[in-house]
Design a protein around this nucleic acid. Structure first.
Lengths: 236, 236, 236, 236
DNA sequence: ACTTAATCGAGACGGTACGTCCAGTCTTGTG
DNA sequence: CACAAGACTGGACGTACCGTCTCGATTAAGT
């Protein structure tokens, strides 16, 4: 099992780690990703630049680590209903994105990642998977409450469940990110409610008149339409 | 009126403008935003660096301009039905986002914009508004087809229409961007269809208010709720 | 004889010429050679940069011309005796060198000339020859007064006269320039008198070879000495 | 006391210093002051441009330092007589001035100094004082040999000695510099001998009616005056 | 009066160097 | 060994000037 990879010599200072990450975040808030410099972080952390590079291979890695912890705060307290859970997660995600350090760095990291496979991996594990887990958790909980039907059995069912999770994740996270960072508008409780409504209603199981490739729910001529909406089917 | 803004002196070369923007895009593809340098662009465009700086104040401005035209290609051909139009725009937007120059630059520009009000303005007019127009257009067309109800009359109706457009825009664009750039997965026709279904169904008029077991937490009994910025569903 | 090289078309503005040279000198005073820019001169002269380059090929040529006229003011009024003439020229040359535009430019032009044969030529005709003429003139005048013996006849005599003129010129001009610009000290009347004394006495025919108490190191016993390009004293 | 001015961190490379100064001198020879660029010097010295700017604030300071050491080679070996010493120093100074690096830079530095008090100081200590010391030394030696009278006692004597040194210095250095750089002609042994003769003879104590503060030979009341002029002596 | 041709102001253009800044590495001495 | 300090390479940044080049708009001088 390898054991500790290094045992002799002076151990690394844990205080330094914290100071560096704090300094990185505060620099991020004040300067943004582009203006943030390693030298400045070192000064803020009262640490030599060498110490930074001894722990992180480069600026990207440091900043990603510094940012990742922000996403640790994403929790999904049980608010009692699926709708409350979704609205809650939308609002708390928006709140996170509106913090200047997140705003300044998330897109920058993503941009950097378009050229850097390793960085893409870090983002996936540190951010994406962590968020996606919330969707999985929320769905599981709604199924337990009976708000959503259980997953169909078998590998096909699991695959579809995964697809649904991915879609929901991209819709929620995408809409929130887009509104905050691209459209540059606030996420109000009203907007969160509207998004949630759209989502829950959109996920309701279609009546699926057989033969329709994926059913066009907008077809006003379809008499089954009314029924399908009754069927509270939806799934997340 | 107005008159030509500049009349004396040697006029700027239009050919240089084109060469510079082309060079910028090709450099963007090969190098990405971070590695792109002004000097390199100048060499590619066979132009002096001075000439770049005479037209654009800095790298950001140049790249935004170079990228913005990519969004000109977003069109909304009438595909005959709302569903087809939505699916079409999702796919063509995804196709745009998967082109390396777009991928490399969109997020970087957005990131930069978090610190730069002027840049935010440029993005809004050059990219966001241009895309949002598609939503407006598609909605108008669907109303003409009778697929969607007409806007309620009066300023209140217009405001709600605007809110709906914003929401739909953030959901579509956000989901596509998030899947392409953050989740880093392909937008397949199947995914586009699923997203479209979710969207259309989500926007359909809410089902009969009674007997819905999928919990509408927007308690219809709550009078305050009905009043505020509610009413998201049932219109595009 | 060529005739006027150009007759048709709009003639050049003489006012522009004056304005440019004046502007150059004032820029020289304020900025010095190194900081002076063509663009700035053009602005000061309220003239387009093109107009400068239509008249002078480059910065050097312009500045040399602008500076050269300063040396026009060197005159040699007949002060009645050789000594008075020499002191007068020393003082008036010093006065010229202490004017800021001269100070700022003379050495710069000379420095530039070390790499530029054409510039060296311009300096020679515009400055050096003009000054040297003063020495020739003063000498001629002193000869007329009987203060100096006439030139020996024949080409050998003329050559020696030329050598003496050159030496005297380098001593006077060199000493004044060096004191003003390198030693950076003022040329006072006392200093001028001391220099003149040294010069006149130095050029006097060597005293009786015997009994000189301050050692004449030009050992008359040295045969080699008498032969070569000797004979420096006693004539100008 | 003071202690070492700098103790922590990696010490500056002495090798780099040498390489930079050598590179500067060789660039000076090939390109001259005006064409010399910091980037080129850095390349020649195989050093980053940053390293140049860490040691010298700008081009001027670097070149002055690089040039100053050239003047270290000015020595005054005892050649046995005042005349030999003077001739020797004239020739060796001329030799120095005719080296391309000196020629290219001395005047440029002086020119620059007209605008820059600090640079003037550097020139004084690095060049002027060093040369002036030679005059002092030569004079002292000649006094020891009995070729020149000892300094008059008291502060007045010292002041006069200083004035004489300054004058002699300006005459020698000025004449040599002027001939080399302004007149742009060679300093031949013959010219050196002629200059020396002029100087020694010029400095010989005037027939001097005693009691003259510095022997003003121009005193028209001085009966000796008439004679001196008769003596077909001096001339310009 | 009408042509003609060079001038003029304005400012864009290609180049080149400047002096600054940062990333990431290396080299000291101290704990 | 870790660490602080800071020098080091390499390379881009954005600015400033030079000397050239287009423009359109004036001017004389010659017809």
């Amino acid at each position: 099992m390898a054991g500790s990879p290094r045992r002799t010599g002076r151990p690394r200072s844990a205080a330094a780690d914290r100071a560096i990450l704090d300094a990185t975040r505060s620099a991020l808030v004040e300067l943004g990703w582009g203006r943030l410099t390693m030298g400045d972080v070192a000064v803020r952390a009262k640490v030599a630049k060498t110490t930074l590079y001894r722990r992180w291979a480069n600026k990207n890695d440091l900043v990603v680590d510094a940012v990742a912890v922000l996403f640790d705060n994403l929790r999904l307290p049980d608010r009692g209903s699926l709708r409350a859970d979704v609205e809650g997660v939308v609002l708390s995600f928006a709140e996170l994105l509106e913090r200047p350090e997140t705003k300044a760095s998330l897109m920058a990291v993503v941009a950097e990642a378009t050229r850097d496979e390793a960085l893409r991996g870090r983002i996936r594990t540190a951010i994406v998977d962590r968020q996606k887990h919330l969707v999985v958790e929320g769905r599981r909980r709604a199924q337990a409450r009976g708000e959503l039907p259980a997953d169909p059995p078998g590998p096909a069912g699991a695959a579809e469940a995964a697809r649904t999770v991915d879609l929901v994740f991209d819709v929620i996270a995408g809409a929130v990110v887009h509104r905050c960072l691209v459209s540059a508008e606030r996420v109000t409780p009203g907007w969160a409610r509207a998004l949630t409504t759209l989502l829950l209603q959109g996920l309701a199981a279609p009546p699926a008149p057989a033969g329709d490739r994926t059913a066009d729910p907008a077809d006003p001529a379809d008499p089954a339409d009314g029924e399908r909406d009754q069927k509270p089917a939806g799934s997340v």
